[in-house]
Design a protein around this nucleic acid. Structure first.
Lengths: 338, 338
DNA sequence: GTGAAAGCGCTAACAG
DNA sequence: CTGTTAGCGCTTTCAC
């Protein structure tokens, strides 16, 4: 920077002002501005961001903490968020928690240390303390996909209860009676809401809720283990005529289990799944789902965060954006003939 | 840091040494080290990374530039790289180029400015200049998935020629004669190699290469447009008895086109695809593919980069790791009865 | 074993 | 319009 100033016979201050777009406010002549910009371009000068951060405390960076960046849903959320963030001059650090609370905690700590300006977080179970800490420090952040019960925060997510209710109700209306529910063991809001939606739809149609028809597997298990336990569950509950899979990867594993058990989707067994996936769209028969509008979730989230970053975290009001999932009826759940 | 030093009646130097694990080398007593560490924990002190970067010029950050983070392949690569990087004390900035050279360029510039220590890059066409610049600056970096022809760099990728050759040969051996090839318009090495593999397998069996059977669509087109052009292509070439899809997303769109055209995979038409996908595994019939060993690619890449970061970029020798894809025969390409 | 002090590159308040 | 200057928080050389 000094070089530039000297070479043009200017002061370092002037250069700094030009660099930060304050030439107008500081009354620097257009000619000077141009001279500076030209030389900067010519020399390929890059302001040192570390120094800038050190000085200003702002890094123009946001942290995106998701459950699994390899997953279709989160991967695409990440893509859109990154795009929008870049447009607004922000860079994105991303990280996957793998649903593990310890990982999530150390991730937040590491990101904090790198002076990120804001967070977008897919919470894990037990993350309450860190979130409360962020609130105290008035760090701008937004929870996505799932809430942390009892903590008031900004949040963007889908109406899980609605989606599960509609999906279950769709099965009931088509004549299915023994509807299984396959989910992961989780106390996170989105899973609880999906289960509530399922149960509520059954209750509403006066169908008995049979605990044996509810299978919950640990998130951390490998695909093989989960597939095997779904196979076992199907064998032990021959009376099941339809299954609700609470996430897309469970749906995928469920399809595998069904195939291994030599059942035919849409014939011996109806299925529906929360969250869409290419597999569900392209299979024959295609699978009925509650699809999360990925683009909308991502763009609302980043918009909200940018707004918070902009206005310097003053407002104390928290915004919750609950987006309705799209119920896409396909033919994995045809009307039962009897 | 000052606070800590004062509170313990030590100098700031001592605290710094402890922080950086140099207590041993500097001969600081165990007791002192413990006192310092305890207080740090108690106060929840976090060293300011900007200051550290400013002082040391090292950020412990690597940039991962992929084509599309929402894609199954890159998403999972990213996940593994991030995991390994974190283990080694590095953070990861990721970004998607969307195959666009301009985006790629500005991404590299932005990352450079944020003082990343190293790069992992999925090159775009026309990125030569930036890569040469990185080489000149002796920035450690590794190209993945595709090479930049004519530039000698470290590289990790799959043997595209081999995979395409084997897949095509598999179709030929099973009696298919009119084998179509659907790819994207691209001058990038991986696409060229796949096409070469396809053509070479045909030549080897003395099958005429019919240009009309080769369809190339622009990467930037939307899925709908690509699907439509595949439909058109299939209608105009009724004699096609099998199709080779050069990427998994083309395979997906191709399946859609085939379904829309009321063809039956494995009956009217055989198909194979480069790069595996859940859809290919779970469909009936399942799709024969050349699968890229994601875990291996990712771990070799990060391993290589860490090595380079470690030894301070001295060695001038470039390493190329070419990994053989797994040819997974499924029943989308059954033996033709005649 | 420990402490003093220079300085990484930049911003912005202040004084012209 | 421009120049001087303090200082962001840390590392590391050199001296004790």
């Amino acid at each position: 920077m000094q070089d530039i100033a000297t070479e043009l016979g200017l002061s370092i201050t002037t250069v700094s002002f030009v660099l930060n777009g304050k030439s107008e406010a500081m009354g620097i002549s257009k000619a000077t501005v141009k001279k500076v910009n030209d030389l900067i371009l010519k020399k390929g000068y890059n302001p040192n961001s570390a120094a800038r951060i050190l000085r200003t405390g702002k890094s123009n960076t946001i942290a995106l903490i998701v459950e699994d960046i390899g997953n279709h849903f989160f991967g695409n959320i990440a893509k859109i968020i990154e795009l929008e963030a870049n447009k607004n001059g922000y860079k994105v650090f991303f990280s996957s928690t793998e649903g593990d609370n310890h990982i999530a905690k150390s991730l937040i700590a590491a990101m904090q240390q790198s002076a990120v300006d804001g967070f977008i977080i897919t919470a894990t179970s037990g993350l309450e303390d860190e979130i409360i800490k962020l609130k105290k420090e008035k760090k701008p952040f937004i929870l996505i996909d799932r809430l942390l019960p009892g903590i008031d925060t900004d949040y963007v997510g889908v109406d899980n209860f609605f989606g599960a209710y509609e999906l279950t109700n769709h099965l009931l209306l088509n004549g299915y009676k023994k509807i299984g529910f396959v989910s992961i063991t989780s106390d996170m809001s989105q899973m609880i809401d999906r289960k509530r939606g399922y149960e509520s739809a059954l209750k509403n149609k006066k169908v008995h809720i049979d605990e044996r028809l509810i299978l919950e597997v640990p998130f951390s298990e490998t695909g093989e283990v989960i597939t095997a336990s779904i196979q076992k569950y199907l064998k032990e509950n021959k009376n099941i005529d339809a299954v609700f899979f609470a996430t897309n990867y469970l749906g995928l594993l469920g399809i595998e289990a069904i195939q291994l058990n030599k059942l035919k989707i849409g014939k011996n067994i109806g299925i529906v799944s929360f969250d869409d996936h290419d597999v569900f769209r392209l299979m024959t028969p295609a699978i009925t789902v509650a699809a999360q509008p990925i683009t909308e979730i991502a763009s609302r989230t980043i918009e909200l965060l940018l707004k918070k970053l902009g206005k310097g975290k003053k407002s104390g009001v928290h915004v919750s954006e609950i987006i309705k999932p799209d119920i896409i009826i396909r033919n994995s759940s045809p009307k039962k003939k009897r």
